[in-house]
Design a protein around this nucleic acid. Structure first.
Lengths: 238, 238
DNA sequence: CCTAGTTACGTACAGCGTACGTAGTGCGCT
DNA sequence: AGCGCACTACGTACGCTGTACGTAACTAGG
């Protein structure tokens, strides 16, 4: 008794099943899959305890037998999509391998556009997160730097991937959700930006904006950012 | 009529005051300040329309005369803390200046720990955001690269600052909010991590974890990340 | 001066996370 | 063998959220 709510347990530390009582109707994987299905279809805001329960065909409160807090449901979701990572055999070229990892993470995020919004909050190292980290370290085996530096590389690279992809997804969804076309939305935005620029208070910003012609190639910007981060860890470039 | 709700207007584009009717009781700055005060004191979740209205001493629904959606309130908040940025005179040493900018952003975030949670969603360029961007470009004047590259530098650097500081704040708050001491929390976490490691499935991860002795110096990790990003843009290092 | 566009704000609604209580189930211990 | 308890299941209910809507007071433009 008593320690029911007081425990800040990482959900992964609590056993999925203890011997006693009726057999649980679902596994954690079932629940995670249902939540992911909903998030993919209706966005993260569609993931409510009631919706997930409905998707599983059980009462709302029954979920709390599996997931102590909603936050833990998010953790399950992140772990679930972590399984989509392909843990390929390292090629011996750490740069190419890490680039591949990053592109794959981006692809996963584009497949599950709610992931970036969840990333900052998720903390406990889930099984699949640990597997992915291990895989990255395996890819970095040929890189001749201390182990601590390698984990810093992974952290920095993942951070950049999440930030950039999250931004790209957010802008894409913003224009999509509006009852406006992208051109109109852009026109409104640019009209405002133009009015600001016209004040003359931001000369350098104005120059940067007007200099660039045509729309930005988000994929190219992303690639360049990755390359730069990798450059910063490459001993052969120092 | 009619276009009341349909307009996806950036809040900065809508004029603060139109000539007709009674004089508004507050300015946008008043509202932003109230919201910031609440967020600083009670966290971002304490910022509800009712709370902000109470802080201002007005009815809840009156806020909607100033702020069409809650999302826009967030935008006001971000702009408000943007004013805390010191727009110093560029020294001529772009690396030093950008380092200073980054450290200052980090300091602001530590002062307003809710900022990182808000950053990914905020999109419309607020006045103070524009001013800060202009200031960064001024600092980068001595750097001999295309203007587009400079904006990419600013974006990448800001992203890294937000990610790292957001993580650091999140972990700090997690241990604080718990009715546990940091040691206990860590013990629980490490016990789980240890149990995973004991499976032998993560040899490289295990090595990385056991290799490091003592607690991580978050500040040093942050500094190193900044330096690396700057390195990646430094023409003298290529 | 009048009237249309504002501000102010009380009420109300749908939806959220989840605490709590109750009923039923089946493992482990005696 | 059978008792008891830990577990699952889930309906109800509470406090909270954002905000749509209606009404009353107010003031600048025609």
């Amino acid at each position: 008794m008593a320690d029911r709510a007081a425990v800040p347990e990482v959900i992964w530390a609590r056993p999925e099943r203890t011997g006693r009582g009726p057999k649980p109707a679902f596994t954690r994987a079932d629940i995670a899959a249902a939540a992911v299905r909903i998030a993919d279809a209706s966005g993260l805001d569609g993931v409510t305890m009631r919706q997930v329960a409905a998707e599983l065909g059980c009462g709302t409160m029954s979920l709390y037998n599996y997931v102590p807090r909603k936050e833990d449901l998010y953790e399950l979701m992140i772990d679930a999509i972590g399984a989509e990572h392909e843990m390929f055999e390292p090629s011996g070229d750490w740069r190419a391998d890490m680039l591949r990892n990053a592109e794959e993470t981006r692809a996963i995020m584009y497949r599950h556009t709610w992931v970036p919004r969840l990333m900052p909050g998720v903390f406990g190292f889930s099984p699949n997160t640990l597997r992915y980290l291990e895989h990255c370290l395996a890819c970095l085996e040929p890189l001749d730097v201390p182990a601590g530096t390698k984990t810093e590389l992974v952290a920095l690279l993942n951070g950049v991937v999440t930030t950039y992809t999250g931004n790209d997804i957010a802008t894409a969804e913003r224009t999509r959700s509006m009852p406006w076309t992208a051109e109109e939305e852009n026109a409104v935005r640019m009209a405002y930006l133009g009015s600001q620029i016209a004040t003359g208070a931001y000369p350098r910003l104005t120059a940067a904006f007007t200099e660039q012609s045509g729309p930005v190639d988000l994929e190219a910007v992303f690639r360049r950012a990755l390359e730069r981060v990798l450059d910063a860890f490459d001993p052969e470039l120092r």
